[in-house]
Design a binder for these strands. Structure first.
Length: 848
RNA sequence: GCCCGCGUGGUGGAAUGGUAGACACAAGGGACUUAAAAUCCCUCGGCUGAAAGGCCGUGCCGGUUCGAGUCCGGCCGCGGGCACCA
């Protein structure tokens, strides 16, 4: 055995696994199946530390499951459609298809040396027509089942580049290329009816037992179920043929405090007024210039316009409320109209102060001030409130009881209609871009919107397109759009919108079960392999991707592409933290941020120009922010095993980890030590005598703890266990036989992390076959418990001493021993303790 | 702004409500060496003490408890998501 040559070892064992087909999954066998999946990457062309961390975690799980008797499926593919390739095409002229395939090849070259136990035979990219053609077929199925529809929706419009912008491309309200103020524009777009599944998607969260609680909470909040009531407010004079403005409220208990009604600029009343009143039109136009993100709308200054109209207060005869148009009222949610109660809602209070509207309480909290200053009085749901108005008869109730009771009250009086609403909106999937899955429909003047015939699928993206101007190349393609109507045969036009890339990633996990099927899935394969037993990916996908996938699985089930058992596709989810890194930023002459690569910066200044750089600490690594660290040099320098060991050591996997260069070397040094230790023990005669008890105990403890820590995703702790066990083994004076067994066990325990090194040690220590196929060791429970235990002795909760006693010593005896210790007798000074708490095997606390 | 999470030595972190700092990294000291690298050994939260020990200490303030890094309430700071980034 020579020096540790990571590169040689890694190539050798990767070749051996390839040759043996170790990771090729097949449906046969009598073992239980286990499907482990990591979120597939966008092929940026370079792997980054986040990928290495994510896929190594999955690999540890996959290898551990293989060793513990499962038939494992562990596939990999490419989320290959998306904006970056199209942007690059505009910048450099390289066709997205060319660049994407180059980048896939480049990335695969960087991934292969890491030795992940992936079944590459199932690889596919979503930009291949074999994949997206099946997606188009499902889209048509979804149309037939009424899961898809069209409606108008707003997009960000760059008036200079004459193109639709993604939210990411809108910076401070301006287009990222042109710098022009972005406008909102309405387009007819395609939607999935995910909102029909709001209740089901919400209710089913309760059964996702192996999902992180925070992800479930985020999803539940996103779906946003609320009980409220729709209350019509009668206009004192009708507007056209509109007699009422119906407001949706979840807080009818605040009705006494209502001091205005606010409507969206897209509300029918606003639209009617707009036609006649130029001031209204101007205000509505201002509202519509606002960015489309919820964040921007929430943060924007609240603006209002008094229409001069008024409505009657529903419960107080003779009282009227003014009607305002508010830029903070969304037409998409509720009815596009709300009543404002400044006393009990902070936003309404700010609005009322700004426009000098009355503030009037509906209730107060007993024992607290009634006057509302600059803070709205918003009681916690469990807090008692006392009404000032006609609800006073309810007596002392909690805020939540008040809400429920007043909803019932309004309903009973016929003043409103109780209603459950969800925040979840339908999923708009239309993208006015080239590099995505074409939506397989045709627009015919005679027949309207007609789905493409399935035998004509896939609707392939044309390759002969140009990227010399912004906008969708499909729109300006000379011939691709022009087709005959699939229904009547007359000349018609293809849909030129493509699908959101979230569609591509909403079912790839199902496709992996039968990647070559000529239908979206193969039922037998889907029944065998689904669900994904363990899904692993970034916490940034906690809402959208996972919610869309849950919806898609249901839709696929309805269309016969997934079995009933697979409507919740991910049995267990683990969300890893992100790999973060500083961002280096300067500003251009217009004040817009310009990002710089870490290697372009020295001592807080741009290396090239000396310009001072603003350093933003610890942000998600992303290509657009240029703070991505390339792991390739670490792999080249220290080997894949060291890189794998390093990314899982130290940081708990669910937590973000700030990238630092140190540590990779430490991992390499440790693997070297293991290598040399194993070499030394290999050369030991088998019959060397020694005391085995300590090593044997340590080995069983390591087996137990490493196994447990892998199963619970505490990879960093398992590595700490391995460090500890290696240290004990290195100093052991146990017999040759025991040390050799310990080394083989160490290799097995390390094998999910450092599989190449483990294989090599295994081979040198006379292990049978590949360690990748070896059976995981099992700890002897009897060797895990120590006979004696050291108990801390606390006095008034502070540790003052300790005693070492037999594990099973009775409480009374422990108490007696504790009271006899110097520290306790000194503290007691002859007096009697108030109380003595003895927690067997844990602690003794003497209370004076 | 709203939803979610996080905050422990110089650093990454460990700790079923029960000895805070496991396991590492960095740093310092020593051994080996002509020297360096590599390797090995020791020290390593703060203050105090010759030592034994003592006091303080898990972002801040308060609470529950025999006992709080852990549970509860209120702050502060940082990160993620906010529906066209993937």
């Amino acid at each position: 055995m020579s020096a540790y040559d990571a590169n040689a070892i890694e190539m050798k064992w990767q070749a051996a696994w390839d040759k043996a087909g170790t990771f090729k999954a097949s449906r046969s066998g009598d073992k239980p199946k286990y499907y482990v999946l990591e979120m597939f990457p966008y092929p940026s062309g370079r792997i980054h530390m986040g990928h290495v961390r994510n896929y190594t975690m999955g690999d540890v799980v996959a290898r551990h499951k293989m060793a513990t008797g499962y038939n494992v499926l562990h596939p990999m593919g490419w989320d290959a459609f998306g904006m970056p390739a199209e942007n690059a095409a505009m910048a450099s002229g390289i066709h997205p298809q060319t660049s994407t395939h180059q980048q896939i090849a480049a990335m695969k070259d960087q991934m292969k040396p890491l030795g992940w136990s992936l079944d590459w035979s199932r690889e596919f990219a979503t930009c291949e027509s074999e994949y997206y053609g099946q997606q188009q077929s499902m889209f048509i199925d979804f149309m037939e089942k009424g899961l898809v529809y069209r409606k108008n929706a707003v997009v960000n419009w760059d008036p200079v580049d004459m193109t639709v912008l993604a939210n990411e491309q809108v910076i401070d309200g301006k287009g990222w290329r042109s710098g022009a103020a972005v406008e909102r524009r309405e387009l007819t777009q395609w939607f999935f009816k995910i909102s029909d599944y709001s209740e089901e998607l919400l209710a089913a969260i309760d059964h996702l037992d192996n999902w992180p609680a925070k992800v479930k909470l985020m999803q539940a909040n996103w779906i946003g179920k609320s009980r409220g009531i729709e209350i019509p407010f009668h206009l004192t004079a009708p507007v056209g043929d509109i007699a009422d403005i119906t407001c949706y409220s979840t807080r009818p208990d605040t009705m006494r405090g209502a001091s205005f009604v606010a409507i969206s600029s897209d509300h029918p009343v606003a639209k009617t007024l707009e036609a006649e009143n130029p001031d209204v039109a101007t205000f509505c136009a201002t509202c519509r210039k606002m960015a489309t993100t919820e964040e921007a709308m929430e943060k924007a200054e609240k603006l209002g316009f008094d229409t001069g109209l008024s409505v009657a207060h529903p419960t107080e005869p003779g009282k009227v409320l003014p009607v305002w148009i508010g830029n903070f009222v969304l037409m998409d949610y509720g009815t596009g109209a709300v009543f404002g109660c400044p006393a009990h809602d902070q936003r309404d209070l700010d609005f009322a102060r700004k426009y000098d509207l009355p503030v009037r309480n509906a209730f107060y909290i007993p024992g607290e001030a009634v006057e509302v200053g600059n803070d709205a009085l918003v009681p916690a749901k469990t807090e008692p409130v006392e009404f000032i108005d006609h609800f006073a008869g309810f007596g002392a109730v909690t805020s939540q009881q008040a809400i429920d009771a007043t909803i019932d009250w309004f309903e009973a009086k016929g003043l409103g209609t109780g209603m459950v609403k969800y925040r979840l909106r339908d999923w708009g999937l239309s993208r006015q871009r080239y590099w995505g899955c074409p939506i397989p429909v045709v627009h015919c003047d005679a027949c309207g919107v007609v789905p493409e015939k399935k035998e004509n699928l896939p609707v392939e993206l044309p390759v002969d397109v140009t990227f010399d101007q912004p906008g969708n190349p499909l729109d300006r393609h000379p011939t691709w759009r022009d087709v005959d109507c699939p229904s009547c045969g007359k000349p018609a036009r293809r849909e030129t919108d493509t699908m959101d890339t979230f569609v591509d990633s909403s079912w790839y996990f199902a496709r992996f079960t039968a990647p070559n099927a000529d239908t979206p899935t193969n039922m037998d394969d889907a029944k065998y392999w689904m669900n994904v037993d363990q899904y692993i990916g970034g916490v940034e996908h906690a809402i959208l991707h996972l919610l869309y996938s849950r919806f898609f699985a249901r839709a696929m089930n309805i269309c016969g592409h997934l079995p009933d058992s697979a409507i919740e596709p991910f049995d267990a989810l683990f969300t890893q933290g992100m790999v973060t890194h500083e961002i280096y930023q300067t500003r251009d002459d217009k004040g817009r941020p310009v990002f710089h690569l870490p290697e372009e910066v020295t001592d807080g200044k741009l290396t090239a120009t000396g310009e001072a750089v603003e350093i933003i600490p610890s942000a998600k690594m992303s290509k657009s922010k240029k703070n991505v660290v390339d792991p390739v040099h670490i792999i080249q320098q220290y080997g894949a095993d060291a890189a794998r060991w390093f990314v899982l050591s130290d940081s708990p996997p669910e937590r973000d980890v700030e990238w630092t260069a140190s540590g990779a070397e430490a991992a390499y040094k440790h693997l070297n030590r293991v290598w040399m230790l194993c070499d030394r023990i290999a050369q030991m005669p088998e019959d060397t005598a020694g005391d085995d008890t300590g090593l044997t105990r340590a080995m069983h403890k390591a087996v137990h703890e490493v196994s447990l820590n892998i199963e619970t995703f505490a990879f960093n702790k398992a590595i700490a266990n391995l460090y500890e066990f290696t240290g004990i083994l290195g100093k052991s004076n146990a017999s040759g036989a025991a040390q050799k067994l310990a080394v083989r066990t160490l290799a097995q325990l390390m094998s999910p992390y450092t599989p190449h090194l483990a294989e090599d040690i295994w081979a040198h220590q006379g292990g049978q076959g590949l360690i990748a196929n070896a059976t995981w060791p099992v700890a002897d429970e009897g060797l895990l418990v120590e006979d004696t235990v050291t108990l801390p002795i606390q006095i008034n909760g502070k540790r003052r001493s300790e005693i070492t006693v037999a594990r099973d010593m009775p409480k009374e005896q422990v108490e007696k021993l504790a009271l006899a210790t110097d520290a306790v007798t000194r503290a007691l000074d002859g007096s009697v303790p108030k109380k003595i708490i003895v927690v067997p095997g844990r602690i003794v606390n003497v209370v004076l």
